[in-house]
Design a protein around this nucleic acid. Structure first.
Length: 339
DNA sequence: AACGGCTCCAACCGCACAAAC
DNA sequence: AGTTTGTGCGGTTGGAGCCGT
């Protein structure tokens, strides 16, 4: 049998939407929600297929969508995330509130990709087209390390995007469009992680490793809360970011008191049904990468990401301070160019 | 004014996957 | 367990608008 075609070829309009069609769709969804896209166009009096209606709503009509020029910060975010994730537009868009994946994708293809190409950077690999980044100082190992960092970040961001997606789904109720574009929960996690990454890499220069360890129950499948532990070298970053007012958007005040205390250096994120606790610890003996892998895996990371982690585990500890500097210079160069 | 080339972006297409039946 | 349905995602396309000749 197979499924019936989602779009009937006959009798349905295609192409650009007219203001009248937009108004019909908007009015209907505001009154009835969009529980079933297939039956929606008929009920709304539209000669469109449900898929077309859904696309129009998600990319254009949904309240809160930001249109117009991308800011420099948005450019930076897109370039950075694309370097780490590739063409994972939904994952990238999860970190850009109020932008749609279609818009980000178009913006990348028509603007950012060209700019990178013009400055001699391959928009696919994000490396200079002629020479490998980092080889200028005679140490190709740096390029390798940056590549591994990118893989590491890629897996992490994919996991965060999933959490953000789940959170969005939980927020959405048919007929209620007011919270359709609430900021993704992962944004604060990104800030935290970015700080942690830089601090931990710097800390590794002294420790000979990242200095972050897996907590006692970090790999416990039975535990309702996965725990990730950080060494003291990362605590400053955790405290700085987590204690910011931004975090109030993620955790309610009561919940904050319950799960997060600066004295214990713990950070907890209650993302839907998947609570994550990031716990500072004096234990520096654990395997940081393995801990990350376990933690994210048990919180919806797929096997592909796990394999990425295993690759990184064998080589990340060879990193040095130049990696951080090289990474910083890389992004500075890009941003200087596009600004 | 007319034409052609180019850019940009809204929308379409096909595939994948999870949920529902 | 197999089929159907709904939705998400990324790649691609069509056409409107701009610009130069």
């Amino acid at each position: 049998m197979g499924r019936t075609p989602y779009c009937d070829a006959d009798g349905l309009k295609k192409g650009l939407w007219t203001p009248e069609e937009d108004q019909k769709l908007l009015t209907y969804i505001q009154q009835h929600g969009h529980r079933c896209w297939r039956s929606l166009p008929k009920k709304a009096g539209l000669q469109r297929c449900g898929k077309s209606c859904r696309l129009r709503w998600n990319n254009y009509l949904k309240p809160g969508i930001k249109r117009g020029r991308f800011s420099l910060q948005e450019d930076k975010t897109i370039i950075q995330l694309h370097a780490l994730l590739g063409n994972k537009w939904s994952a990238i868009t999860a970190h850009l509130p109020k932008r749609t994946d279609n818009e980000v994708k178009n913006y990348w293809n028509t603007h950012l990709k060209k700019r990178l190409a013009m400055m001699g950077i391959d928009p696919v690999t994000h490396k200079p087209t002629s020479t490998i980044l980092g080889s200028a100082n005679g140490d190709p190992k740096n390029a390798l390390n940056l590549s591994h960092m990118a893989q590491w970040e890629s897996a992490r961001l994919q996991a965060e995007a999933r959490l953000a997606k789940e959170s969005k789904l939980r927020q959405h109720e048919p007929g209620d469009t007011t919270n359709a574009l609430a900021p993704p929960l992962c944004l604060d996690v990104v800030k935290t992680w970015q700080s942690l990454m830089l601090n931990s890499i710097q800390g590794s220069l002294h420790n000979g490793a990242f200095g972050l360890g897996l907590g006692d129950n970090g790999g416990d499948l039975e535990s309702p809360t996965s725990t990730l532990s950080f060494s003291k070298s990362a605590q400053a970053a955790v405290s700085t970011v987590v204690s910011s007012s931004d975090f109030n958007g993620v955790l309610g005040a009561d919940h904050m008191n319950e799960v997060y205390t600066t004295q214990q250096h713990n950070m907890a994120l209650d993302v839907g049904d998947v609570p994550i606790t990031i716990q500072a610890s004096d234990n520096e003996d654990g395997d940081f990468i393995e801990g990350i892998a376990n933690n994210l895996l048990f919180n919806n990371l797929d096997m592909h990401s796990l394999s990425t982690f295993s690759t990184i585990t064998s080589t990340t500890s060879t990193g040095n301070g130049e990696v951080h500097e090289m990474t910083k210079n890389y992004w500075n160069n890009i941003l200087n160019f596009i600004s």
